[in-house]
Nucleic acid binder design. Sequence first.
DNA 1: AAGTTGCGTCAATGGTGTTGACATAAGGCG
DNA 2: CGCCTTATGTCAACACCATTGACGCAACTT
Lengths: 237, 237
Amino acid sequence: MADGRVPGERRRRRPTKTGVLLSQEAIVDCALRLVGQHGPDALSVRRLGTALGCDPSALYRYFHNTDDLLLAVADRIIGEAMAGFEPDTMDWLDGLRDMARRIHRGYREHPRVAALAAYRVTRRPHEFRAVDAGIGLLRRAGFPDAEAVRHYAAFVDTVLGHAALDAAHLALPPDRRAADDAAWAAAYADASPEEHPQLAAVRAHLPLMAGSSFDRALDLLLSALAGAACPEGRKTG
Amino acid sequence: MADGRVPGERRRRRPTKTGVLLSQEAIVDCALRLVGQHGPDALSVRRLGTALGCDPSALYRYFHNTDDLLLAVADRIIGEAMAGFEPDTMDWLDGLRDMARRIHRGYREHPRVAALAAYRVTRRPHEFRAVDAGIGLLRRAGFPDAEAVRHYAAFVDTVLGHAALDAAHLALPPDRRAADDAAWAAAYADASPEEHPQLAAVRAHLPLMAGSSFDRALDLLLSALAGAACPEGRKTG
DNA sequence: AAGTTGCGTCAATGGTGTTGACATAAGGCG
DNA sequence: CGCCTTATGTCAACACCATTGACGCAACTT
C-alpha cells in the first residue's frame, strides 16, 4: 500500500528490473516529460510504468492513486511558474499582469495536468506566497483590506478560469480540438442569416473566436481594477 | 455506424428489448438525470445503456461517440439556461449581465456536466442562438464588428471560466468542499506573519475568499466594457 | 552474517469506449 | 395483404484503463 510519504524521507533504493531508481521526483519528471512529448493520452499508469522501466503497480508505492500523482505534478508546475516573481520591483498593475500571465502560461504548458488540477486549492507554500503577493499588490493600489481581498478573489478566479478553459481546450485530442476551432469558421459561418442575423453580419470576423481570449479579458479586468482604484482615471504607481 | 442525423428526421421507432423507444432527446434526458444523481463517473456508455434499458452500443446509432453525446447534453443545458432570454427589451449592459447570470446559473445547476463541457463548442442550435444574441448586444453597444467579436469572446470565456470553476467546486465531495472553504478561515489565517505579512494584515477578511467571486468579477468586466464602448464614461442605451 | 521489511513484480479483477457481424422488425411498395 | 429493403437493437470481442493482493528478492540494520 502506498504511504505517500514525504519526499525527504530515506527509502530503500532498490533498482527496477531495468536498473532504474524510482522516486517521487523521478516519477513527476517522467510524467511531465511524457505528457510534453507524447500528448495528453500518454499520462496513464501503464505508459508511465513502461516509460520509467518498471511495473505500473510500482507507482502505488509512491502515490496513493493517480489523483495524488496529478496533484504532485500540479504543485511542480505552480512552483516553476511563480519562480522568480518579484512583485516589489514593479507597479501594482504590472505586478498583477505578470502574475496572471505566469499562472496562465504555467498551466498552458501542461494542459492535460491543468485541465484536471486548475480547480484545486492546494493550501501549500507556493499558493500561500502567491496569495500573499497578490493581496499585497491590491493593498498597494490603495484598496481597503476587505476590498483588496474581494478584488483579489475576482482577479485570481478570472485568471484561473481562463487558464482552465484554455488548458482544457489544449488538452483535447487533436481532432476534437481542431473540430472545435474549425467550428467558428465553418459551422458558425454557415448559420442561416434569417435565424442568426448577428452571426451573419460579423461572419468575416468569427474565426477570431477560435483563439484564446485571455489577453483581451486580462486587459479588461485590469482596466476595471485601475478604474476602481483611482476613480478619476489617473494612473497610479 | 451512427449518423448523428437531425432530430426531426423520421426514424424507424423500434422498441428495445425492455420496450423503451430511444431518441436523442430521451438519451440526453437520461444522461442529465444520471449525472445529477450519481456523479460524473456515471456518464459511461454502459451505465447509460442499462439506465435506458438498451444495449450500450445502441447509443452509437444516435451519437457518433461519447464526445458527441456530451456536446448534446451541454447544448441542452445552454438551451434551458437561455430560455426566455429577451435581449431586445433591455439596455445592452443589462442584457450581457442577464446572459452571464443565466449561463453561470445553468452550469451551476449541473456542476458535473459543466466541469466536463464548459470549455467546449457545442456548435448546436442553442449555442448558435446564444452567441448570436451576445454579439448582437455588443454591436448595439457601438463596437465595430471585429471588436464586438473579440469582446464577446473575452466576455463569454470569462463567464464560462467562472462557471467551470464554481461548478467544479460544487462537484467536489461535500467534506472536501467544506474543507476547502474552511481553509481561508483556518490554514490561511494561521499563516506566519513574518513570511506572509499581507495575509496577516487582512486576516479578518480572508473568509471572503471562500464564496464565489463571480458577481464581483462580472461587475468589473462589465464596467470595463462600458468604458471601452464609451470612453467619455457616459452611460449608453 | 543474519533478519526485517521495503518495494518491485506478477496476475487478476472489473471497469472503459468502440467496432463489426448478425438478427429482426418497421415501413414502403406492389 | 405480403414481400423486401434496411434501419436499428443486440451480441461478442478487442484493446485499453486503474487498482489490488500475494509473493519474493534485495537493501539496509543490527
